[in-house]
């Protein structure tokens, strides 16, 4: 058992290393840096820019830069944002918090509604199925966009603008916060709902014809017992994987919603950082979301391992 977990964690670490290498290589290979975007500033001469550049990054080679970045990451120091003139950590922390709040609210809503809808069967199942297929056919960004338009058109709940230019947004009161989060969270839920519905529906359908469930039916166990003790455990595996995936995408799934609704989360910050070539911010942000994705996979593995005694056995 410990062996499997150790292997999993080792794999996760290797993946993490590969991710860091990938991010770093991509951004280093990009033509130009933050300072090339400044060359158009009339007030800055080339020499000033050169000295600024040296000051910002004393290391000459790529490897040195990567190693020094790794070292500071291990110390918990993510470097200094060139565009915002502040430590990356302080820049990211409130943004990450905002994004986590939004995604968690959105995903929780989607899970609750999705599971409830999946339990429906009979006449309304076709309706639910069609609804899921329709939602599934609309790409995430488009769905968020349509939702925003609908909200604007009906003026029922106009999205509350939050100041995105200032990274330090304090969400003053709970009521105001709930008002602000409700629309983007709903938009996220809508995007995530068909995924959950499909998994839950197909899981239950497959579990219905599983030999163990049929066995329980033949033995004449009460319906309740069959559902709770035989069918649900059988249907749980794909949902557990999906749950882990959901945790993993907490930081990255809300990008379009954040941009469209002006939510002061990680997404808009990273976008602007990519355009401004603010390397350290991008790497730190991407790294954080990759870390969460890997952690989500690990959590799913752990849950599966807890759920399925055969997995526990195979590893010991």
């Amino acid at each position: 058992m410990i062996r499997t977990l150790a292997t999993r964690i080792a794999h996760a670490l290797i993946t993490l290393f590969a991710v860091s290498l990938l991010c770093f290589a991509l951004l280093q290979a990009a033509p130009g840096d933050y300072f090339t975007t400044l060359t158009l500033e009339p007030g800055l001469s080339t020499r000033t820019l050169d000295s600024l550049r040296r000051e910002a990054d004393p290391h000459a080679t790529l490897v040195q830069r990567y190693l020094s970045w790794c070292g500071s990451m291990l110390r918990g120091d993510m470097g200094h944002s060139l565009a915002y003139h502040m430590p990356v950590r302080d820049l990211l922390a409130p943004r990450i918090l905002n994004t986590l709040l939004l995604s968690a609210a959105g995903l929780a809503g989607a899970w609750i509604v999705g599971l409830l809808l999946a339990a429906i069967h009979g006449r309304f199942a076709t309706l639910v199925h069609a609804f899921a297929a329709l939602l599934w056919s609309i790409p995430d960004p488009v769905l968020a966009f349509l939702f925003l338009l609908a909200a604007l058109r009906f003026h029922a709940m106009a999205p509350l603008p939050l100041d995105t230019s200032n990274p330090f947004v304090s969400l003053a009161t709970a009521g105001r916060f709930l008002h602000a989060i409700s629309l983007p969270a709903l938009a996220m839920s809508l995007g995530y709902l068909p995924l959950i519905l499909r998994h839950a529906q197909s899981g239950v359908a497959a579990a219905r014809s599983a030999p163990a469930v049929e066995g329980a039916e033949v033995r004449g166990l009460p319906r309740r017992t069959v559902w709770l003790r035989y069918l649900l455990p059988e249907a749980a595996n794909p949902l557990i994987s999906l749950f882990g995936l959901g945790i993993g995408s907490l930081l990255s799934a809300s990008l379009f919603v954040e941009v469209l609704f002006g939510w002061p989360g990680l997404g808009p910050l990273l976008l602007s950082a990519i355009f401004q070539r603010d390397t350290l911010v991008v790497v730190a942000g991407v790294f954080a979301s990759a870390l969460l994705l890997i952690a989500g996979n690990l959590i799913a593995d752990l849950l599966l391992w807890l759920h399925d005694p055969r997995l526990r056995e195979a590893s010991s």
Binding site: P211, A212, G215, P233, D308, R310
Partner: peptide
Amino acid sequence: LSRLSPYRRVESQLRDM
């Protein structure tokens, strides 16, 4: 073998009966 639920111990499945 496949008619027993793989997720639960023999005792609890027998207890259902």
